[in-house]
Write a protein that binds this DNA or RNA. Structure first.
Lengths: 331, 331
DNA sequence: TTGAAAGCGCTAACAC
DNA sequence: GTGTTAGCGCTTTCAA
């Protein structure tokens, strides 16, 4: 910047003014400075600027695994929001609760980022306190906390919608397959979907049977194994609600293996509407994954520029997508 | 830091020394400082440190779309490499050639990142010159340039392997489906695979027929449409080599629609071995996507710490994965 | 073994 | 309109 100033025959202050388009600068000097910048191929040092301004122009997205299609899809929404601004996106993938704690501690520092987005990962009061103290804006996606801004869907209603769809078709033996209801990361959304499922059954006077439920690791193969187990018992369910599309696809695998026809002999409904769900012609609860990232990103950007008032929860709408894997029982 | 120094009754220089674990500091003052840090919940301002040191501890990954499973998988490898270091990962997704140029210009600045990774995106001499001038370490993944470090597979050999597999099974009418051989981003890998395909055919004295080839947008549906077109002509191919698994899955869709049995009436081979390929039981050319990110990330980290010598190309091995979608023609 | 002080590159108050 | 200057928070000579 010194060099540019010298070459243009002005002070660094003036160069700064020109570059930032601020203040009253005479057209003549403006051009001189611009020319000097071009000739020296100069551009601002963003680090120095950050130090001076106390703004990093960086947003951090903290998420558990880049392997989950739903998380990637949300992240894409976040990217889109960032593309609308001048902020860069730091992607932090944490595999263990310990790593999560370390990362959350690190990124609750004011100097590190302008704001943080937490995707599909529950936070505890300690984490929240750190952020509230440091004043780093934080938005949760697919997670709950009363003191924070968050964008979610109503998973309990979603679970209910799924189960009610099956009940409406005439099913009474309705299985439920999910990841662990109590896991180290405590995905609260799974639990909420389970509650909705129970509620729907109870409302229809259908007993909620443990033997129609399985929980386990996340993933298509695990879901397949659970479904195999579930369907091999005497008097098996005639319909299965899987708490994610990935799991629902695993259920379809199991049905294929057991030569059980879908939807004639078994109805399957998923949750999320990931890209593959359409191709598999899977009935599912669509949740706006991309939009959740987009909305959260925009909200966060707002907070960065204008510190927010009281925390709000943005609830995005769910939609039942009736496709080819559900039908009345017995064909 | 002032506060910590005051509280510990030392100078900021000493605090700095303690935190960085450097130099000779007496155990007594070390403990005093550490205690003061803990009491004040203090930690270094990374921005100030960056300004002083000229290192940002940030690596930028520049890629085209987060929608391609292959790119996400490579990115995961990069993440893994970063997790081994103290660097953060900036993920820059660029949708258009203009955005790419802007981003590449921006991130060839020394002050912005310690290094840059470009994933599945060709670079031209102008881009390269900028990086070479600024001295920002750069590693290419799935892209070519003689003056840069890069990690690749031998796509020409890969294309050849795929075609030879089909020829070996007895096929003579072998279709080829790909994204545009000349596209705005000029994915050179597609072209290389095509060359390998041609080579294999020529070696086997099979004429390379334009009418057995289709190119178009990337994506499962586009591939399906191309396959529909390809298979609807008189004397259609008995086997199709799709330049990516996503496209191969689109070909399977088309076959299903046309009630053409795979592999009995049509053999299909893909490329990449993305996660879905296994579930679809797709014969494919496995390329180490995750590892490409990991290796490139490590290489880049090395370069950051020790400026590299002459550029090298790391070639990762390809592997034919024979699964259920290929068989001799006519059943 | 520790402290004083310069300076990384920028911006914003204040002077002119 | 433009220049001077202080200072963002850190590290690192150099001196003690």
């Amino acid at each position: 910047m010194q060099d540019v100033a010298a070459r243009a025959g002005v002070s660094t202050a003036t160069v700064s003014r020109v570059i930032n388009g601020s203040d009253y600068v005479s057209e003549a000097t403006r051009l001189k400075v611009l020319r000097a910048c071009a000739e020296l191929d100069y551009s601002l040092n963003p680090i120095a600027q950050s130090l001076r301004l106390g703004r990093t122009k960086t947003i951090a997205a903290i998420l558990s695994f880049l392997t989950l299609p739903s998380i990637v899809e949300r992240l894409r929404g976040v990217q889109a929001a960032m593309a609308e601004s001048d902020c860069d996106l730091l992607t932090l993938s944490v595999g263990t609760p310990e790593a999560r704690d370390a990362i959350l501690e690190k990124y609750s520092q004011r100097a590190r980022t302008d704001g943080v987005l937490i995707i599909s990962m529950p936070v505890n009061d300690n984490h929240v306190k750190r952020f509230l103290n440091s004043g780093v804006p934080l938005v949760l996606i697919d997670a709950q906390h009363p003191e924070l801004n968050r964008v979610n869907v109503d998973d309990e209603t979603g679970g209910k919608m799924a189960a009610e769809h099956l009940i409406g078709l005439g099913h009474r033996k309705i299985g439920f397959i999910s990841s662990y209801l109590k896991n180290p990361f405590q995905f609260s959304s799974t639990l909420a979907r389970y509650k909705g499922y129970c509620e729907a059954l109870e409302s229809a006077d259908i007993p909620v049977l443990r033997r129609y439920q399985r929980e386990g690791e996340h993933g298509r193969e695990y879901a397949r194994d659970m479904a195999l187990d579930l369907l091999s018992q005497p008097d098996p369910p005639t319909a299965i609600f899987a708490s994610s599309d990935t799991k629902a696809i695993g259920v379809l695998d199991a049905a294929k293996e057991l030569k059980i026809r879908v939807p004639e002999e078994l109805s399957v409904i998923g949750y999320d509407n990931i890209r593959d769900a359409e191709y598999m012609n899977l009935t599912t609860i669509h949740q706006p994954l991309f939009d959740s990232g987009l909305e959260a990103g925009r909200k966060l950007l707002n907070m960065v520029h204008a510190p927010s008032s009281s925390p709000v929860e943005i609830i995005l709408p769910l939609k039942l997508l009736k496709r080819g894997t559900t039908a009345p029982p017995g064909g």
